[in-house]
């Protein structure tokens, strides 16, 4: 690890000013410190935001929740309101990392955790995400963890968060404060970016921006589930995951929302698949058609081809589960 300066921000303005001057924000530190130890990231200065007043979960107007950026993953998963109205979010959180890590990890930090691409972690390897312009060593290498959707010739990495997949299916928005005093609210689809030719830029945040909260709208559907498929029974990132929410009214699927993890540079959504399901009576054939539509545009990289049948089956299983009884 390289030496760095460390400052505790006493106010959001403080934090944004320091971050605008080049300091890196540290929240739970569970991702950032690992990357610093491996020298994948070597910030000269850290600004600690843990003293800011961003640790509460409040009820929002219109029936949603406002989750402060510093709410710990454990606390969010344990919140009664979350467990009642957004059980899929609690499931996703609890499927991630370990108890110790979730006690430290924050809502904001979780959204911004970096990819688990093997080559990103090895500073001896070319990696456009770590060192823009150096190349992508993953292409042609071991690609088990890599993307099926939205990748580019510059980067095929996936976003590893479980929480973010659930949030995307729940139509959550990220609240961002900027140094100029403007507050933006962005749905996850607009918050994250595809790699394109700038895979090192993962979100629309600019230096000096601070995530202050995540806003959950009133729950869309009562039937929710988060299904994570991984190599071992715990303490592993998703090979693929599916977050699903829908209702069944008069024997028909309504307002389906589906997000997919482990397959894209951001939690993935496919409006066509949702449109295909909307208003239809649940059936094995329908689910198969939805799954086929989802993977139709998948672009495997070799070592991750197994994720295509896996994703298809996981989606079908989730739809079965959500529409049963």
């Amino acid at each position: 690890m390289r030496p760095f300066e460390f400052t505790r921000a006493e106010s959001a303005a403080d934090a944004m000013r320091l971050a605008g001057d080049g300091a890196t924000i540290i929240a739970g530190g569970t991702n950032l410190l690992d990357l610093m130890k491996l020298e994948v990231m070597a910030p000269q200065a850290l600004v600690d935001i843990n003293r800011l007043d961003l640790g509460d979960i409040d009820e929002a107007e219109g029936g949603g929740l406002r989750i402060g950026a510093l709410v710990r993953n454990s606390d969010l998963a344990a919140d009664r309101r979350v467990r009642d109205a957004y059980p899929m979010l609690a499931e996703a959180l609890l499927a991630g990392a370990s108890g110790q890590l979730r006690n430290k990890a924050t809502t904001g930090g979780n959204l911004l955790q970096r990819t688990r691409c093997y080559y990103y972690y090895d500073t001896a390897m070319p990696c456009n995400k770590r060192e823009p312009g150096s190349g992508c060593q993953a292409i042609g290498g071991i690609t088990r963890l890599h993307a099926l959707f939205g990748a580019s010739e510059h980067c095929i990495a996936t976003h590893p968060s479980d929480m973010a997949v659930a949030l995307r299916a729940l139509d959550a928005r990220v609240e961002i404060q900027s140094q100029d005093g403007v507050t933006r609210m962005l749905p996850l689809g607009d918050f994250y970016r595809l790699p394109g030719d700038t895979p090192h830029i993962e979100t629309v945040l600019v230096p000096g921006d601070l995530i202050t909260a995540v806003l959950l709208p009133a729950p869309a559907g009562a039937r929710q589930t988060y299904r994570k498929v991984r190599d071992r029974a715990s303490y592993a990132f998703a090979l693929v995951s599916v977050a699903g929410v829908l209702d069944v009214e008069d024997g028909r699927i309504v307002r389906p929302a589906l997000a997919f993890g482990g397959v894209g540079h951001m939690p993935w959504r496919n409006p066509e698949v949702e449109a295909l399901l909307e208003g239809e009576a649940p059936s094995v054939d329908l689910f198969a058609e939805a799954a086929a539509r989802l993977v139709a545009e998948a672009e495997p990289q070799g070592g991750n081809a197994f994720k295509i049948p896996l994703l298809r089956r996981t989606l079908q299983a989730v739809l079965r589960e959500l529409t049963e009884a």
């Binding site: 071992r232 029974a233 715990s234 592993a236």
Partner: peptide, 8 residues
Amino acid sequence: YLIPTNAD
């Protein structure tokens, strides 16, 4: 490098 966890 995956080794079993308690849950496995």
